[in-house]
């Protein structure tokens, strides 16, 4: 279980306040919807068929009990009491209100979680085997590499406006790796 350094925590707290200001600028009209949309997406907020949807990152699919309890609180306080776990190891809330999202991000930051780059034309949440560190046939746990890649890709100045989304997966289990001594890095 990775625990934020003070550097990580300062970054996430600053990012929440940046988004709070971006929401205010969208509501006061100084940002148009077309301009606001990429920044909304880069902070995990989609506008879906019926409502907004917030996609929260669960890096390499790993959570502790305090974080799962906080997600339960968030689903009750700002959503309809349920969350949706996705095939890319994230969780999605289906009914958040735009003005509540900065406070939701703040509640996530309290338990070392965020929604940064879970959407948008940037490098997305790094995924790994969901049995990492536990599977009987695993040669090496890829999650430290996934965390290093997460930090390297966070707010990377060159890669916030790519042609399209960019996804990275790291696998360590023997089943997927072609030769035993290598991890596999997949970029798509």
């Amino acid at each position: 279980m990775y625990h934020y350094s003070s550097f990580d925590q300062d970054f996430v707290n600053t990012r929440v306040e940046q988004f709070r200001a971006q929401v205010a600028r969208r509501l006061d009209g100084s940002l148009t919807e077309d301009e606001f949309k990429p920044f909304r997406l880069m902070n995990g907020l989609y506008l879906q068929l019926h409502a907004y949807m917030l996609r929260v990152a669960i890096p390499y699919g790993t959570l502790n009990s305090r974080q799962m309890t906080q997600l339960a609180m968030i689903s009750e306080r700002w959503d309809k009491g349920y969350g949706h776990f996705t095939t890319r190891q994230n969780i999605q809330f289906n009914w958040p209100k735009l003005e509540d999202v900065p406070n939701i991000l703040e509640a996530l930051a309290e338990v070392e979680m965020h929604a940064i780059q879970t959407s948008g034309n940037t490098i997305r949440n790094i995924t790994t085997d969901h049995f990492s560190g536990a599977a009987a046939d695993e040669i090496a746990d890829p999650r430290p590499i996934a965390e290093l890649l997460r930090q390297w890709s966070t707010d990377h100045p060159e890669f916030q406006f790519l042609p399209r989304k960019f996804k990275i997966a790291v696998t360590g289990s023997a089943a997927a790796a072609p030769s035993p001594a290598l991890m596999t890095l997949v970029c798509g």
Binding site: E35, P38, N121, P157, E158, F159, Q160, F161, L162
Partner: peptide
């Protein structure tokens, strides 16, 4: 367009 990020790579 602000959504076209090629200039960042060119500067680097």
């Amino acid at each position: 367009s602000f959504a076209d990020g090629r200039a960042f790579t060119l500067a680097i």
